[in-house]
């Protein structure tokens, strides 16, 4: 009897979990293919692809936003890795004085309300002409992802066994060679993980893009925002579905190179 109760409970919890995860998504999928859905009805009254045509028509800027989003996300990954690798190397090796202070410093952009941070960044970027540029948006996104990329990179470099590097030096490798043949390959799983985070954060970023990019740079989240503000749930749902494409594609690519047990080692 307790066994039955137990399995019922487990089943219930699983069902709730599935509802929490898949409920919003299935609602979104329904809306994406809806042509008519008025209030009292439980399900759409008419299905069709009319709104897909509207999204993909040349004057609708969905495709431009999608390309923008992916481009910005890729550039953000490059920028933040270019910063996180040296920073992670310095912080992960524990020689730096006030190491913890530095690590916490990267948390600061997250610690303040993002509206306040982004409003002021926009103000500064405006004076130096970065507002409304790709670079400006990429920098804002990189700042958002900084705490993840630096912390994960620091953990990844910190986890590389010193003796492995010493063994390479002992075989005659100069420091730079040691870094590229031993340190970097061993830290790579962690760096890939940080790249995933940064990519996904950038793809999802809204306030920074809103303050710095608009109206010159439009990304998918901005398009989504506009559509839902206008009450246009079909457009919003289709945009959201489109937004899933690069995320899932990126994760699949990463998954091909990384097994989850490697990712789980991050931070050890």
């Amino acid at each position: 009897m307790p066994g039955l109760l137990r399995s019922t409970l487990v089943g219930l919890v699983l069902a709730l979990l599935a509802l929490a995860i898949f409920g919003p998504i299935s609602n979104m999928i329904l809306w994406a293919f809806t042509e008519q859905w008025y209030f009292p009805a439980k399900l759409p009254q008419a299905y069709g692809f009319a709104f897909w045509e509207r999204v993909f028509r040349p004057q609708g800027n969905a495709m431009v936003s999608l390309v923008n989003s992916v481009l910005i996300a890729c550039m953000t990954v490059v920028v933040s890795l270019a910063f996180a690798i040296p920073a992670g190397l310095a912080l992960g090796r524990g020689r730096l004085p006030f190491r913890v202070v530095f690590l916490l410093l990267f948390l600061l952009p997250q610690a303040f309300p993002s509206l306040a941070v982004h409003m002021n960044i926009a103000r500064i970027f405006y004076t130096i002409g970065l507002n409304g540029t790709f670079l400006g948006v990429v920098l804002v996104h990189a700042l958002q992802g900084m705490v993840f990329s630096v912390w994960i990179a620091a953990a990844a470099f910190g986890a590389v066994d010193r003796e492995l590097e010493e063994a390479a030096a002992n075989m005659g490798a100069r420091p730079l060679r040691v870094f590229f043949t031993v340190t970097l390959p061993l830290a790579l799983p962690g760096l890939m993980a940080s790249a995933i985070f940064v990519f996904l954060i950038s793809l999802d970023e809204f306030t920074g893009t809103y303050f710095v990019g608009v109206p010159d740079i439009t990304t998918m989240p901005l398009l989504l925002f506009t559509a839902s503000m206008e009450g246009n749930y079909q457009i919003a749902s289709i945009t959201a579905l489109l937004l899933l494409v690069p995320s899932v594609a990126f994760m699949l690519v990463i998954e091909r190179f990384l097994k989850s047990d490697v990712l789980a080692k991050v931070g050890h």
Binding site: D161, E163, L164, E166, A167, A168, N170, M171, V182, P185
Partner: peptide, 12 residues
């Protein structure tokens, strides 16, 4: 040439 106690072989 040194042989380390942990062997220090490169796992990758």
């Amino acid at each position: 040439a040194m042989m380390f106690q942990s062997y220090a072989l490169w796992p990758h």
